[in-house]
């Protein structure tokens, strides 16, 4: 089965981010296809490359990045939600005159159309949220 995953909450504050990751990983291990993972609302915070959780805790951003590398996952961060919350990639930062950028390279920034397309293309869209 082909899935699109929507992640609506940030890391650590909510288990949502972990659950979405674990579901995605389990689905891939069972041979299912992940069309896209779309990060929305505070979920965009999962994409920061500047998070420093304690060393004996999981690093959710890195877990996503490792999974993405292994399975060529399309990890998409909503541009509007990201800009609101100060999540920028290098392009966005320079275009908006900001002096820093913080999106992990395993993620890409794009628009909400990518979420709708995910709903159209996948057999199931699974929303992880509060």
């Amino acid at each position: 089965m082909k899935f699109t995953i929507q992640v609506n909450e940030g890391p650590y504050q909510h288990q949502t981010a972990d659950s979405a990751y674990q579901f995605t990983k389990a689905a891939l291990e069972k041979g299912h296809e992940i069309f896209r993972v779309f990060f929305y609302h505070d979920g965009v915070n999962n994409a920061t490359r500047l998070g420093l959780p304690p060393q004996d805790d999981r690093n959710i951003t890195n877990l996503w990045a490792e999974l993405a590398e292994k399975h060529e996952l399309d990890l998409v961060v909503c541009v509007a939600a990201a800009q609101r919350r100060g999540l920028l990639d290098e392009n966005e930062a320079s275009r908006n005159g900001k002096d820093a950028h913080n999106i992990h390279p395993a993620f890409r920034i794009s628009g909400l159309g990518q979420l709708i397309e995910g709903g159209i293309q996948a057999d199931r869209l699974v929303v992880f949220g509060d």
């Binding site: 929305y40 609302h41 509007a80 939600a81 628009g111 909400l112 159309g113 979420l115 709708i116 397309e117």
Partner: peptide, 15 residues
């Protein structure tokens, strides 16, 4: 508010 933003973008997809 952000749900409404999805609805408005999604409206362009003729679903």
């Amino acid at each position: 508010l952000e749900s409404l933003e999805v609805v408005l973008i999604g409206a362009a997809f003729d679903q």
